[in-house]
Amino acid sequence: TYTWNTKEEAKQAFKELLKEKRVPSNASWEQAMKMIINDPRYSALAKLSEKKQAFNAYKVQTE
């Protein structure tokens, strides 16, 4: 089980997950979700809006 003390740690864990699963920077949210949804870190960020925000930040960083 994973635990995160801060929102920032949770966001980092979520981005690490995207990186580890090699989600391409041109992937849509739907494509990315299919690649990461079974990992416990997918739940790091509770709100869908937070997940999408972190995903978009990840995409910008990896382009």
Rank of each mutant, 00 (worst) to 15 (best):
L45T: 01
V60F: 12
A13H: 07
M35D: 05
Y42P: 00
M35L: 12
K11G: 11
N5A: 15
N38R: 09
Y42W: 13
N56S: 08
Y2D: 14
E8A: 11
I37K: 13
K52W: 06
F55I: 02
Q53W: 08
S49I: 05
L17K: 00
K34S: 10
N26C: 14
K52C: 09
N5E: 15
I36Q: 00
E8I: 05
K52H: 06
A10Y: 02
K34Y: 12
M33Q: 13
V60G: 08
A32N: 01
Q31P: 02
K34R: 13
K15S: 15
Q61M: 10
A57M: 12
E63C: 15
P24N: 04
D39E: 04
K47N: 11
T3A: 09
T3C: 15
Q12P: 00
K34V: 13
K51E: 02
N56G: 08
K51S: 03
K47L: 13
T6N: 08
K51W: 05
K52Y: 07
Q53T: 11
F14D: 00
E63F: 05
L18I: 05
I36Y: 01
M33F: 06
K52F: 09
I36S: 01
E50Y: 06
D39A: 01
K59F: 05
A32S: 03
Q31G: 08
I37R: 10
L18Q: 01
A46K: 12
L17M: 11
E9K: 02
P24S: 05
A32C: 14
E9T: 04
E63V: 11
S25H: 12
N26T: 12
W29E: 00
E8F: 08
Y2V: 15
R22D: 11
P24Q: 04
E63N: 11
S28C: 10
N5W: 08
K47G: 10
A27G: 05
L48I: 12
R41C: 02
A27R: 02
A10N: 04
A32P: 00
E30F: 10
E50A: 05
A54H: 04
N56E: 11
K21C: 09
L45S: 01
A32R: 00
S25K: 15
W29V: 02
K7A: 10
E9Y: 03
T1M: 14
S28P: 08
K47C: 14
M33I: 08
N26L: 07
L48R: 05
E16C: 11
T6W: 03
N26I: 07
A44N: 03
K52I: 15
K15F: 15
L48S: 06
K21I: 05
V23D: 01
A27Y: 10
N26M: 06
W4P: 14
K7S: 06
A44V: 04
W4D: 14
D39T: 00
A44R: 02
F55P: 01
A13M: 07
P24W: 02
W4N: 07
M35R: 06
M33N: 08
T3M: 07
M35G: 04
L17V: 06
V23R: 01
T1W: 10
E50K: 03
Y58P: 02
N26H: 11
Y58E: 04
L45R: 00
K34H: 11
E8C: 13
L18H: 00
A32H: 00
K21Y: 07
A44K: 02
K15A: 14
F14I: 01
A27V: 11
A57F: 07
K59C: 13
K19Q: 14
A46N: 07
L18D: 00
Q53D: 13
T6M: 05
E20L: 03
A44L: 03
Y42V: 02
F14M: 02
A13R: 05
Q61G: 12
Y2E: 15
S43Y: 13
E63P: 09
T6D: 13
E50F: 03
P24C: 06
P24H: 04
Q53K: 14
A10W: 02
E20D: 14
E9R: 01
A10E: 08
Q31M: 07
P40Q: 06
M35C: 08
R41P: 01
A32V: 07
A32F: 01
M35W: 06
S28T: 12
K21G: 03
V60W: 10
N38C: 13
E50V: 03
N26P: 02
A13W: 03
A54Y: 05
K52E: 09
Q53F: 07
E63A: 12
L17Q: 01
T62Y: 12
S25E: 06
P24G: 05
K21N: 06
K11A: 15
A32Q: 01
K15M: 15
A57H: 10
T62L: 13
W29H: 01
W29S: 00
N26K: 07
D39G: 00
A32L: 02
K11D: 14
Q12G: 10
K51H: 02
I36D: 00
Q61R: 09
E16T: 09
E8R: 07
K51R: 07
K15N: 15
E20G: 04
A27P: 01
A32I: 05
K15C: 15
M35P: 01
E30K: 08
I37D: 09
S25T: 12
E20Y: 07
M35H: 06
A57K: 13
F14C: 01
L18G: 00
E20A: 07
N56F: 11
T6V: 03
A13Q: 05
S43P: 06
N26Q: 08
L17E: 00
K52L: 09
V60Y: 09
K19M: 14
L18P: 00
V23A: 01
K52G: 03
S28N: 12
S25I: 11
F55C: 05
V23L: 05
M33W: 05
P40N: 08
E63K: 12
A44Y: 03
F14L: 02
K19L: 14
R22N: 11
Y58I: 03
A57G: 06
M35A: 07
L48A: 07
T62R: 08
Y42F: 10
P24I: 02
K7N: 06
Y58M: 04
K34M: 13
S25D: 07
N26D: 15
A46V: 13
E20I: 04
E16D: 13
T3Y: 15
A44S: 09
K51V: 04
N5Q: 13
K7D: 12
S25R: 14
E50T: 04
A13T: 05
P40T: 06
K19S: 13
Q12S: 13
N56Y: 14
S49L: 04
F14S: 00
L45K: 00
A27F: 09
Q12W: 07
P40F: 13
R22T: 06
R22W: 05
D39L: 01
N38W: 08
F14W: 03
Q12F: 07
R22K: 12
Q61W: 13
W29L: 03
T1F: 12
E16M: 07
A13V: 10
K59H: 06
T6H: 04
E8L: 06
A13G: 03
T62H: 13
L17H: 00
I36C: 06
L45C: 03
N26G: 09
R41W: 02
N38D: 12
S28Q: 07
K11M: 15
T3G: 08
N26V: 08
N38F: 10
E50N: 04
Q61V: 10
E9I: 02
V60M: 12
Y58A: 03
S28V: 06
Y42S: 02
A44Q: 03
Q61P: 05
T3D: 14
T62M: 13
S43E: 14
E30T: 09
Q61Y: 10
E9V: 03
I37Q: 08
K19F: 15
N38A: 15
E16P: 00
E16W: 05
Y42N: 02
F55A: 03
S43F: 14
E16F: 06
R41K: 04
P40W: 09
L48M: 12
N56R: 10
T3Q: 14
T62I: 10
T3H: 14
A54I: 09
K52R: 10
E50S: 05
A27K: 04
S25V: 08
Q31V: 14
V23G: 00
K47W: 06
N5I: 12
K7V: 13
K15H: 15
L45D: 01
P24F: 03
Q12N: 10
T62C: 14
K59V: 09
T6E: 06
Y2H: 15
Y58C: 05
Q12V: 09
A57I: 07
W4G: 12
W29A: 00
K34Q: 13
L17Y: 01
V23K: 04
A10G: 07
Y2C: 15
Q12H: 08
E9W: 03
E20W: 04
T62E: 13
A44H: 02
I37G: 07
K51Q: 04
A54E: 13
K19I: 15
L48C: 12
T62Q: 12
P40I: 10
A27D: 02
N38I: 08
K11C: 15
E20N: 05
Q53I: 09
A10S: 05
E8H: 06
Q31E: 11
K7I: 12
R22S: 09
Y58G: 02
T3W: 14
K19V: 15
